[in-house]
């Protein structure tokens, strides 16, 4: 379980996150929405241990963010908004590269199966020749190599076709429901958020997102 208590973050004099408190249970898919600059990425980066914790308390499965950063990173799968893969490598080489540096060992067959589960079947193809959707799938597959307990995704489906978007959304939903992973992700695609998320948090003061979700009969919590 992820517990966030009284989390605050300032950039110089500007307060980005103010006394944020929430918790996410295993097997839940949680969406973070809000206008640009509201603090979604800051919250996600803090949960990913990329930004030091200044004020507040975060705990995941008993591991404290203040003291157990290295252990926490073994539990976290972070999917950045930018596609973070070696473009000149093939899908196979990308998977092997990150497997070698990962905490867990996996065979090539296991790595290939991970890709196939995501409907990424261009194993030998160079990444730079893949479609945007395929690259996004590879971006996620790499983050899953070490079997993380929590997945943090920063706009994982931005700029890709509808089919790939639905495949990724469906896969993430299954990951939570079947394997009990905790999934938190940000997106501007409200349809996707409403379809796959169990709970939705709105960050920021703009009422647009909150009203839109309420109009569609969704339960919303404001952070």
């Amino acid at each position: 379980m992820l517990k966030v208590e009284s989390l605050s973050k300032n950039y110089d004099s500007k307060q980005v996150l103010a006394d944020v408190t929430f918790q996410v249970n295993p097997g839940e898919v949680v969406g973070l929405v809000g206008e640009n600059g509201a603090g979604k990425s800051t919250l996600l980066n803090t949960l990913a241990t990329l930004i030091p914790l200044e004020k507040g308390h975060i705990e995941f499965n008993g591991l404290r963010y203040e003291s157990d950063r290295q252990k926490l990173r073994q539990k976290i799968g972070f999917i950045p908004q930018d596609i973070a893969v070696w473009e000149e490598f093939s899908v196979e080489e990308n998977m092997v590269f990150f497997e070698q540096l990962s905490w867990v060992r996996k065979s090539r067959e296991q790595l290939r199966q991970l890709c196939l589960d995501m409907k990424l079947d261009r194993w030998k193809e160079k990444t730079q020749s893949l479609s945007g959707g395929m690259k996004r799938k590879l971006n996620i597959a790499i983050s899953l190599i070490h079997d993380p307990d929590i997945l943090l995704l920063d706009e994982p489906t931005v700029g890709i076709d509808l089919k790939s978007r639905k495949e990724i959304g469906s896969y993430l939903h299954d990951l939570a429901k079947v394997k009990g992973k905790t999934i938190i992700y940000t997106s501007h695609d409200m349809e996707e958020i409403m379809t796959y998320c169990d709970r939705i948090y709105v960050i920021g003061n703009d009422p647009f997102y909150k009203n839109l979700l309420l109009e569609n009969g969704k339960k919303v919590e404001v952070l």
Binding site: F78, P80, A84, I142
Partner: peptide, 18 residues
């Protein structure tokens, strides 16, 4: 400087070690 930089932070070693 690459986008890979963030991913390299989640390795079994620190980025500096890498």
């Amino acid at each position: 400087q690459s986008s890979i930089r963030i991913r390299l932070s989640f390795l079994k070693m620190s980025f500096k070690d890498y």
